[in-house]
Write a protein that binds this DNA or RNA. Structure first.
Lengths: 226, 226
DNA sequence: CGATTGCCTTTTGTCTACAGTCTACTGAGC
DNA sequence: GCTCAGTAGACTGTAGACAAAAGGCAATCG
């Protein structure tokens, strides 16, 4: 026990900058997902290093991590290139996402108590409000938060980690068309909450599966309507 | 098109050593999975570097990759430690594995032609032979090969990648007890092949699910019987 | 005798330098 | 005019060196 009379949360924890490679990683991921770095673009280590004001080393480490996670392709002795999503890959990612999310819904239905339900309902309310207000970016954020919450309630850390990566990449592919699926999406969220509250595993699984399948179909409609 | 009259596979590809970090990565992974490096052990970069005859840099890069894949925990400014599997984590991992493998079985049933069936049957025959001969290591290898083949037939690269990582970690946790599940396992493999050959997606899914669930139960029996 | 504080060792985090390799361009030969 | 060899440039892959942070130990003060 600390014998100083300081109140618990008063000390701002003296924000440590954290490892440089982490921040470089975050920065690059941000640049990629926002399309500031376009697919296929050649990433030169020294350029990025100079641009970010660090040495090549942290940049290298960040690039390698991005490589293992599928964001960039690392061609030997040639450099890093932003990964170019293919139609097939997007479809496969969506398949996996459906699988993981559906399982998360099932586990959430099995484990969640009233506290969790309340949290979901709050997020859902916020989301519906954001849709009504036409705040597109906020809707996207809240949608991610909702799914993340379901994942959290599932209580499977391994599953959550995998789904986190898959989701982020799906969102990357999907961003250009994410705008159109607004209202209907939150209706489905409501149904999911109900199923979880009833602890109906099968129902929750099916609703989530249908929900992410709708997302996939929206994605595929992209080409025709674009 | 190459105009040289050389046969296609004749040139031994002039074996390039490949990036050092890759080889270091493989080496460390081998050391971890074989328990040469025990869970919780502190991995010192300079030691590993000296031991492997390389500089610290490739070791660092390998460690970071191992970190993102969950093999080691990288505590800031303190170093790398071999990850210590917990009971809970093992269970979650097995859950995810069941999920991924079952989906792979479903997709394999949907896509596989006669060539694929033949390949599976060959692997299965080899496996049964190895069980009969009591060649334990070979059985483990063939089991992995069989599941990898099913995954390949599923034709979903993303799914395969995820399952590959999960499987490898499961096998790490599971190795000490992997010995006991021999004969029964290959009977189930036979059933799975039949379901895939019939293109019965539901049946294939269920068989694979039951199969990996058996594995999980075997794992949990470990404590009592050990 | 116990707690605290300062120093010291160890290890990581970062930067700079050098060597190997691939690409693209230039110029000569056919 | 086209092809091919040669060469120069650029970038990555690797190594070594320096600085900063964390943990451990001992000496000191209460």
């Amino acid at each position: 026990m600390l014998s100083t009379g300081l109140p618990q949360g008063a000390v701002p924890k003296l924000e440590r900058p954290g490892p440089l490679r982490e921040r470089v990683y975050e920065a690059l991921l941000e640049l990629i997902t926002t399309r500031a770095l376009q697919p296929g673009q050649h990433l030169v280590e020294s350029e990025l290093a100079g641009h970010l004001g660090v040495s090549r080393q942290p940049v290298r480490e960040a690039l390698q991590r991005l490589n293992t996670e599928g964001w960039v392709d690392l061609r030997p002795a040639q450099g890093a290139f932003v990964h170019e999503p293919t139609e097939e890959e997007a479809d496969q990612l969506l398949t996996v996402r459906t699988l993981l999310e559906a399982e998360a819904a099932r586990l959430a239905a099995a484990n969640t108590g009233t506290a969790g339900i309340t949290a979901l309902e709050e997020l859902c309310a916020k989301g519906e409000q954001a849709v009504a207000d036409g705040e597109v970016d906020l809707v996207v954020t809240l949608n991610a938060a909702f799914h993340a919450k379901v994942m959290e309630l599932a209580g499977n850390v391994v599953l959550a980690e995998l789904a986190g990566q898959v989701d982020r990449r799906v969102r990357w592919y999907y961003t250009p068309v994410a705008r159109r699926r607004g209202k209907q999406s939150w209706i489905e969220h409501r149904a999911l909450i109900a199923a979880i509250a009833e602890r109906d595993e099968g129902k929750a699984t099916e609703i989530m599966r249908a929900h992410t399948e709708h997302t996939r179909q929206t994605y595929h409609r992209r080409e025709r309507d674009a």
